[in-house]
Amino acid sequence: MRLPIRTRIWDVAQQQTMSPSMWNAPAAPADEAERLNELYSYAILDTPAEERFDRITRIASRVYGADAAYMSFVDADQQWLKAQSGRRLPDMLPRSESLCTLVIATDAEVVINDLRAVPALAGHPVVEAGTWGFYAGVPLRGEHGHVIGTLCIVNARAGAPDGFSTDVLHDLAAISSHELILAQRNSELYRLTNTDALTGLANRRMFDSELTRTLRRSRRTGSEASLLVIDLDHFKEVNDAAGHAAGDAALADFAAVLRGVARRPDDLAARIGGEEFALILGGTDGAGALTVAASLLEALAAAGIEHPKRGRLTTSIGAATLEADDDARAWFARADRALYAAKAGGRATVRTS
């Protein structure tokens, strides 16, 4: 049996650190880390509109006679609109300014008959704007049960429609979840076709796609992003002296070291050429990029991968943080120039551009 609406809203307010008469975004749920891991596994954030999800919001709007319906996915900081009908919203907005964060926090449906009458929502940007009076949102669950997003309807006028029930909204959310699982299967197929067979890292095609996506996301969110271009020093000597089998083994061993440095979900490690690699670092400034580069040099030294003529395998790194006038090609070119400067400066080091 579902909790009464008033009790549900009060539970949210009680979780807040400020007075329940003033909006304060609720704390993340206890399973936040697992929830985010499952969300990221679908590779659905900041992706183009898809008819299969647009259709769900259109049906929701028509069934309920709603002014608008939205499907969104919520990461640690942002709400990403995947599909919407009716009044258009930005493709992303801060999680703290979202009503759907209440659904994430409570792991349950949230229905608010009159947004302006709930003390806990006083000061919320949506309430202050006065655009919506009624809200109903239900969880979108991943395959493992975590609430990774929401499906909601809104009306400008306060008050639930006559005979209102969330049953159809839940059914549509379940259909959406099945579509998500299908999307994950397709994402896995995409990963397999965009993975370097020798190293298990992303290949050049996936790298180019991800570099463009990271640039676009940085422009939209105002976050920084950095790129490392990495080349193994004197690698031809490995193949010439020890054979290509030894060279392949060294590449695989280096990939394992690089993978250990690329720990965050938004980091992408790729093999983009014979002995050339790259690391895309979303949400990372220049200082952070240098820290990661230094960590890679240290980790490679600790790994002690054998070089038949130089003792141990080393690498040179070029780093570039995204600048305002960069496109993907210019961004990569700056990192590549920094790599050549590192090579010219004696190798086994990092340079920035």
Rank of each mutant, 00 (worst) to 15 (best):
M18S: 10
A25Q: 07
D327L: 12
A338N: 15
H144S: 05
A69H: 12
M22I: 12
E97S: 12
T195G: 03
A294S: 14
L102M: 15
E34S: 02
D325M: 12
V118C: 14
D171I: 03
A303L: 04
K82S: 06
M92N: 08
R55D: 03
L140C: 02
A60T: 03
A246L: 02
G149F: 01
G163I: 06
A330F: 11
A348W: 03
R141C: 00
L39Y: 00
D266P: 00
G123Q: 04
T101V: 14
A319I: 14
G311L: 11
P161L: 05
S98M: 02
V118D: 00
A294W: 07
C100P: 08
S176E: 02
R58Q: 10
I56M: 02
V154I: 10
A122K: 12
Y135L: 12
E306T: 14
H124V: 06
L36G: 01
E97T: 09
W10D: 11
V126D: 08
E32G: 01
A278F: 13
A242S: 09
T150R: 01
G311H: 05
I44V: 15
E143P: 00
A225N: 06
V261G: 06
Q15T: 12
L232A: 05
A27F: 04
Q16S: 11
F277S: 00
Q84A: 14
E323N: 05
Y70D: 07
A83N: 01
I280L: 15
T131D: 15
S209W: 09
T314A: 06
R87E: 15
L192H: 15
D171N: 14
S165R: 10
A320H: 13
G273N: 06
S223V: 12
I5Q: 13
D233H: 07
S209E: 15
S165H: 12
T214G: 11
E34L: 02
A344N: 13
E306F: 04
R216T: 09
G260K: 14
V110F: 04
S41T: 02
G304F: 08
P26E: 08
Y64E: 10
P161W: 03
G65W: 03
G243A: 08
L45T: 08
P29G: 10
R141S: 01
L296A: 08
I148L: 13
A249R: 11
M71L: 15
A160K: 08
L172Q: 06
F53R: 03
T47K: 07
G318D: 09
C100G: 08
A28N: 06
W10A: 08
C152K: 04
R310D: 09
L228V: 05
D196N: 10
D248F: 03
I112W: 12
D46M: 04
I305E: 07
